[in-house]
Design a protein around this nucleic acid. Structure first.
Lengths: 190, 190
DNA sequence: GTCTATACGAAGATAGAC
DNA sequence: GTCTATCTTCGTATAGAC
């Protein structure tokens, strides 16, 4: 097993950072946390990330955004936006249960801690926009007028992300289950 | 002007903390930041908050939650939930514009940084639940079945809070405007 | 590419005078 | 109730050897 078959230290650090940001936010996560979690050697931090924590935060946010986007693309492959939205909310419900409400969305963390890590905030904005584009396009393809498709896509992403925040705070899946039901009802009626 | 007519150092610190948490999150805000912003003397931190930063974070989150709840109650006084929801989203739109997208909701910050400040996270959950209760009750009073009222209330709060996060990341009011339009359309049709 | 050691600053928290 | 000073810990970042 060598560098070609196993993720190298750099990738492992990015993945670990994304996981930890989900739980503790960016400010709440130290390099030591990332090293412990990834098993990467301390000496390689500034070798791989000369831009320091800001660079790591930005790359981890971009990685997470791409990861979710890939999931959305796969979910939309079936063609029916309703199904994709169900898969999207189910994905997050599953994550919340697995983590016992101790983890949310790392992209949200980057957005909320905003101006202290500008690169991460920009990456978060780009991720949200990408997801929005994917959903809006799918809704439009299904026959919705372009502007309505865009606003329903906004509602879907905002409501899901917001519900994850509520669910974490209340340690209950109810907000997200409510949102999933309302979104399903709405989109099915279009 | 004395202690009875002017907010004392303790209150000023709580208010300042809430403002700063909106912008930088809890971890991103130091005691020095709070002292600078509030003008409170350094020597009184542990006099007023023997529990340190955890206590300040918890009280600031509770204060912010109560503040928003009071706004919701006032908005619901007109009777029509649609109007109250419009006022709710408009309030946040205004805040985002004023702050040039550099500030969000402090309760969300407490929820996302969660387990590093457990007291604040619990206070965030209580705040969300209170808002939810207010909205759900108003919707039920307007004739909606109880369970539907609850899920529409969840959607409203989750979508609004989520849209604030998206808007900050993208530095655009569009997500929140989209959500406001969709919520208005939905609630008006009930 | 990874190691150890360390500089440097910031932040939370405490002590004791006033 | 507030002041100054300080302790301690921790986190980012750097230096230089291997």
């Amino acid at each position: 097993m060598n560098a070609a078959t196993r993720p190298d230290a750099r990738d492992r650090m990015i993945r670990s950072a994304a996981v930890l940001f989900r739980q503790q936010g960016i400010e709440g996560t130290s390099f030591s946390d990332v090293l412990d979690h990834s098993g990467a050697p301390r000496g390689s931090i500034y070798h791989h990330f000369p831009g320091g924590k800001a660079q790591l935060a930005e790359e981890a946010t971009r990685y997470a955004g791409d990861y979710i986007a890939a999931g959305l693309i796969a979910a939309l492959d079936d063609g029916e936006p309703v199904v994709a939205i169900q898969k999207f909310t189910s994905f997050w419900l599953e994550l919340l249960r697995e983590a016992d409400f101790a983890a949310g969305c790392p992209v949200v963390a980057a957005a909320v801690e905003g101006d202290r890590t500008p690169g991460a905030r920009v990456a978060a904005g780009a991720a949200f926009e990408r997801w929005h584009e994917l959903l809006a396009t799918a809704l439009e393809r299904r026959g919705l007028p372009a502007d309505r498709a865009r606003s329903v896509a906004s509602l879907t992403i905002a409501a899901t992300e917001g519900a994850i925040v509520l669910a974490r705070a209340q340690r209950s899946t109810e907000p997200l289950e409510d949102v999933a039901a309302e979104l399903e009802r709405l989109v099915a009626s279009l």
